[in-house]
Structures are given as C-alpha cells and as structure tokens.
Design a protein around this nucleic acid. Structure first.
Length: 296
DNA sequence: ATATGGCCCTGGTTGC
DNA sequence: TGCAACCAGGGCCATA
C-alpha cells in the first residue's frame, strides 16, 4: 500500500518523465468509483493541459497544470523554462491541478500507447511526446480529482508533513488524545502520509508500544518518535519505497525498503534486536506488528 | 470535538 | 485439485 515514501518516489518519477509534456487526449473508464467528478467531464478538462510539475502532498500526487493549447511541444525552451520556474516555490501558479490518490492498490505509470493495457486501467492520458500516463487500480480505493484553481482552492493536505514538522508542533498534535499512538499516527488530519507500514516501523525504532495512549507519551518519547518517523521515511525514500503486494514506481520498478522492515508483516519472526518473536494484534482495524520486549 | 466501527473493492490465501 | 469463504486495508461516513 503506497504511503509517503512510495508516493514520493512515484511523484518524482512521473515528474521527471512528463514535466513540460501536454495532454493530447484523455481516456477514462466508466467506473464511477475512482473519480470525484464524472469521468467524461474530468477527461475533457484535462485535454490540452500542460503538466508543469508533479509533486507529493501527504499521500496525494498533485499534477500542476496549465490549461489551454500546448505552447510548442513538450521540449520547447519556453516549456522547459516554465517547468523550471514552477519547480520551486511558485509551483502553485498552475491554473489547475490533477490530484491522484493511489488508495491501496493504485499505480500511476508512464508508458507508451502500444504497451499492453493492464486490467483495471481507469485512466489513460496520451501525451504530446508520445508517452502515455496510466492510472491502474484493481481495488478502486484510489481517487482522481480535477481542480480548476479559478473556481476552487489549491489542494492542501489536511495534516502536517512528517518530514518537516518540528518538535513543538509534533508534540502538540498528540496532546490530550485518548487514542492509541498507532491510531493517531494513521490519522491523516494529524500527520499526512503515514500509513500502516511506517506507523509500525517508526514505533519499533522509537521503542514505543503501539497501544500506548497518545496523550500520555512524554516529551522525550514524542521526540524519539518524531525522529524515528523522519528517519524511517527518509531511508525508505532513498530505497525507492517498500514493495509489498503490488507496489511499483512510475516505471513499474519495485522499491527495496521492505528488506529493511523490522516488524511489519514479520509476525512470528525474530525481532532484529532481541530475537523475540514479533507479535501481531489488531488495532484501529489494522494489522499491527511489534516486539513485546523492545517496545514497552 | 473526538473516537470507533462499518463499508467499499478485488486478489490472494485459507480451508474444506 | 477445485471452489468458496475469508480477509486485508485507506479514507469516508454514520454513530456514540
């Protein structure tokens, strides 16, 4: 299931491959599920747009778009300059946005029109360069949204970014909360981007029991958690994310962070620190893995 | 306001 | 071996 590191990896990959390209034609499937507006309407809105940048916000991939006719091919000096300008702080200058949420099984792939079309392909964007951007999602938990910034605000993640949040703000998120720290980590309105894998892995690295009440954690414990979370996310990004089940990046390549998992999906296997068998419980409806000795 | 639980989906796994 | 029941799980919504 794609979380922050996987989404970051995909967003970077897509950015590198389609930045400056423009959407010649958009084909959307007929399922109502992955779309926040009628597929035909969304497809029409995307046609003719130029992709000036692609980035991650929480677990969302945001494609910044300029509407209207493509300038003069994806590699024109004008488009390259434009893309570079929008690469920095002014990226929200885009006139519209295409927001992709991968849900659990979603994939955003850069391929070519002649490549075999995988089952459960819900969107195909033919680009001026001859590439094709595809959204594939068997379980249809993903979402595709088009935002016209002339009419609505730019997309913002509900929660704070775990990669940049500082000590005081992090501690404030959990103050007075009466739910388990693991459940709090999964709450996207507090922190945006943490899912089941990195919740379990960061709690292990911070030596904290997932069931601990969030509001009862000490300042020291919270700071340990903040640093462990940042460290584990950054490490995972370096390794291209975790490939469990069917995650692949924009090129269809698997990540390698799953080799670094200490507890996630390692039920019964020895803890890397103390050899105690990893325990699995159900918490907030999610499989939760921890070492009963290291995480008190 | 905060917390909990059911629901959506399909593919992989389990069990008979 | 084959088929059906079961289950995972992110986010959203109703409910407590």
């Amino acid at each position: 299931m794609p979380e922050l590191p996987e989404v970051e990896t995909i967003a970077r990959g897509v950015h590198d491959r389609v930045r400056g390209d423009s959407i010649v034609e958009a084909w959307f499937g007929s399922h109502r599920e992955p779309f926040k507006m009628p597929p035909a309407q969304q497809a029409k809105a995307l046609q003719g747009c130029t992709i000036v940048a692609v980035h991650r916000t929480g677990k969302h991939i945001v494609c910044e778009l300029e509407s209207g006719k493509p300038l003069s091919g994806s590699n024109s000096p004008v488009n390259r300059r434009e893309a570079k300008r929008l690469d920095g702080k002014s990226r929200l200058d885009g006139q519209s946005q295409w927001i992709v949420h991968l849900g659990m099984t979603g994939r955003l792939l850069v391929t070519t029109p002649d490549a075999p079309v995988a089952a459960h392909t819900h969107a195909r964007l033919l680009l001026a360069s001859g590439k094709e951007l595809r959204f594939v999602d068997p379980r249809r938990f993903g979402r595709l949204e088009f935002r016209d910034l002339a009419r609505v605000d730019a997309f913002t993640a509900p929660g704070a970014d775990p990669l940049v949040i500082e000590t005081a703000e992090f501690a404030q998120l959990f103050r007075g909360r009466k739910l388990a720290i693991k459940a709090a980590l999964l709450n996207q309105t507090l922190l945006a981007g943490v899912g089941n894998i990195y919740a379990d892995e960061s709690l292990f690295r911070a030596a904290l029991r997932p069931t601990k009440i969030a509001g009862k954690l000490t300042k020291t414990e919270l700071e340990r958690l903040r640093l462990a979370l940042r460290q584990v996310l950054e490490h995972a990004i370096q390794l291209g994310g975790s490939s469990v089940s069917d995650y692949v990046d924009a090129d269809g390549i698997r990540g390698f962070f799953q080799l670094e998992h200490c507890v996630y999906l390692r039920t019964g296997q020895p803890c890397p620190t103390c050899q105690t068998p990893i325990r699995r419980i159900l918490l907030a409806g999610r499989g939760t893995h921890y070492c009963s000795k290291c995480q008190q």
